[in-house]
């Protein structure tokens, strides 16, 4: 993969540069759960692991319990829980479910996994 990039054209160089920039992008993530149950704890466990593995040092993850703050659910248009919202970088993304499908989480959050790099 790295070899390929070296031999690529100028457009590809540009893209690579952008990708490197985005790799330094700070992530603001909010996870909404409803109380402590198997789905909530799985989601928390999964997202923490993914962030630690891929966004170490450049992410801000906050966890909210909508049971404790019902108005939040209305404000953020939460229907399904758990819901992970990527506030930054734009655009806004919503991931629902317990985040068990790692590939989809990475795809949804637009994170390139370490293995890819």
């Amino acid at each position: 993969m790295a070899k390929k990039i070296k031999n690529s054209s100028s457009i590809e160089k540009e893209l690579t540069k952008k990708a490197k920039q985005s790799a330094k992008q700070k992530y603001v993530l909010k996870l909404y759960v409803a109380g402590i149950n198997s789905k909530s704890s799985a989601a928390i466990r999964n997202i923490t692991r993914i962030c630690e593995e891929n966004l170490k040092g450049r992410y801000d993850l906050k966890i909210f319990d909508i049971y404790q703050h019902p108005p939040l659910a209305k404000g953020e248009q939460i229907i399904a829980v758990p819901t992970l919202i990527r506030k930054l970088p734009p655009p806004l993304r919503k991931l629902i479910g317990n985040l068990a499908n790692k590939q989809r989480v990475l795809l949804g959050l637009d994170i390139r996994s370490k293995k890819d790099e």
């Binding site: 789905k39 999964n46 909508i66 229907i79 399904a80 991931l95 629902i96 317990n98 068990a100 499908n101």
Partner: peptide
């Protein structure tokens, strides 16, 4: 919306 696993409509 991206589905990443089990969810419910508790929201």
């Amino acid at each position: 919306v991206e589905e990443t696993g089990e969810y419910d409509l508790e929201g």
